[in-house]
Computed example of a mutant assay.
Amino acid sequence: MQSLSTNNPSLYTLATVNDDAQPLLSPTTPMYGAAPRTPIAPSRPSSRKLIFNAALKMSCIFLLSTLVLGGTLWLALPTLEEQDRPLLRIPKSFEQLQDLNGLLKKYRDIYPYRIVICYVITYLFLQAFSLPGSMYLSILGGAVWGVARALPLACCCVATGATLCYLISAALGPALLTLPKWKARLDRWAVKIQQNKENIISFLIVLRIAPLPPHWVVNVICPHVGIGIVPFWISTALGIFGVTVIHTTIGGGLDEMTSPDDFHLISWKNFLGLSAIVVGVLVPVGLRYWFRGQVADVEIGAEAEEVEEAELDLGPDRTLVVGPRAAGNKKQTPVSEEDEYTDFGSDSDDEDIILEAGPALTSATKSTVEHS
């Protein structure tokens, strides 16, 4: 498993699909009254079978989540009047958004906690399965509770719902890696993530602010390119902050609007605001590279100074230890230049280093040798 993830970051999830569990009764286990069989190599499931199993599991998860959503709304929603029940739906148009806004404001003061629970569970459901309508819910939150309360609530809902999509993709997404097209796309994203590994939070925040790729693509790809769940949640909450400010601010004036044209989603004010967020995110990245360059220059200068000091310390040879002088009138035989050249090489300019001199022979020792 480790070698696969080292060579290609998007292969570790594919390896989990092909790892078959060992049966309790293996083919080599001898049975009573039967000869042992030869081991049979396990066959890996085909790509079509893996995709079918993943689609079946996804259908079950979606059905179970729908039942949880319906049960929560049935328990948490207050008893509605007959004329208000048709207005309770996920908004997909401007008219439905205004109708739902009036309905929630009608019951907001009577059942405040129930309305918040229904809002949160609906938002999580849409984000977990990447369904349309999240923008309208952010605008609706700003209209019902104001920007100060709706902004952190919507950011947490988006980040948590995207994390649910992350987990679903981590569990069922490896089946898509058996398709060459999806595998090649994940490999390209794995290379980009690896290149921005040191600035992964800033990189993911910019991806959330940028219109391309779509957010659901980021949710599906991130678990297969080695991005952890904690940096994913943090980057999603921070990356969606600027857009959520725009949506909740629009919701604050929803009662005075008459058409979707009054939203003014595309404007110079919004563009400059998002650009300021991108610049603020990239400033730490630039400072990190600048300080890294400064540290590298300091290290290079220190190494150059050490080399210069080492060169200055090198000088002519010096006498380390001088032994005692020889006793008596014995004169040392001078050494000719030829003998010196023969014994010590051609470097006549270098001075000899005298490490230690032993005691000289006395005259008594000499006379003893002559009598013998």
Rank of each mutant, 00 (worst) to 15 (best):
A162P: 06
R185M: 14
G226Y: 02
C155Q: 07
P211N: 03
L164Y: 00
L207P: 04
L151P: 08
L137G: 03
L254E: 06
R188G: 04
I227N: 00
L238T: 05
A171R: 13
A171P: 00
S259P: 03
C165S: 15
G239P: 08
F232R: 14
V144N: 09
R149D: 03
V225P: 10
S169Q: 12
S259Y: 06
L207Q: 10
K192W: 13
V144M: 09
A162T: 03
G146C: 05
A184R: 14
H224D: 06
I240L: 11
Q195E: 14
A184Q: 12
C157H: 01
H247N: 14
I250M: 14
R185V: 05
T236V: 11
T163H: 00
R185T: 03
Q195N: 13
V220C: 11
Y136G: 02
L167S: 04
I193Q: 09
L204P: 01
H247C: 13
C165N: 12
A143T: 10
L238A: 14
V220K: 03
P174F: 08
C157W: 00
G228P: 09
P180N: 09
P223A: 05
A175D: 04
W182T: 15
N199C: 10
D255T: 13
A162D: 05
A175K: 11
L172G: 02
E198W: 08
T236E: 00
I168Q: 11
L172E: 07
L172K: 10
T258G: 10
V218W: 01
P214E: 11
I246T: 11
A184G: 05
F203R: 02
T163P: 00
L151R: 09
I200K: 12
P260R: 08
P152K: 13
I246V: 15
L164N: 02
T160N: 02
I227G: 01
V158H: 02
W189T: 13
P180R: 12
F241P: 03
D261G: 14
G253A: 07
T163Y: 01
V245H: 06
R208V: 01
G146W: 04
V218L: 10
P174R: 09
G242Y: 04
I227V: 15
A210L: 15
W189P: 00
P211H: 01
T163F: 01
W145Y: 15
L172S: 07
I168C: 12
L254C: 10
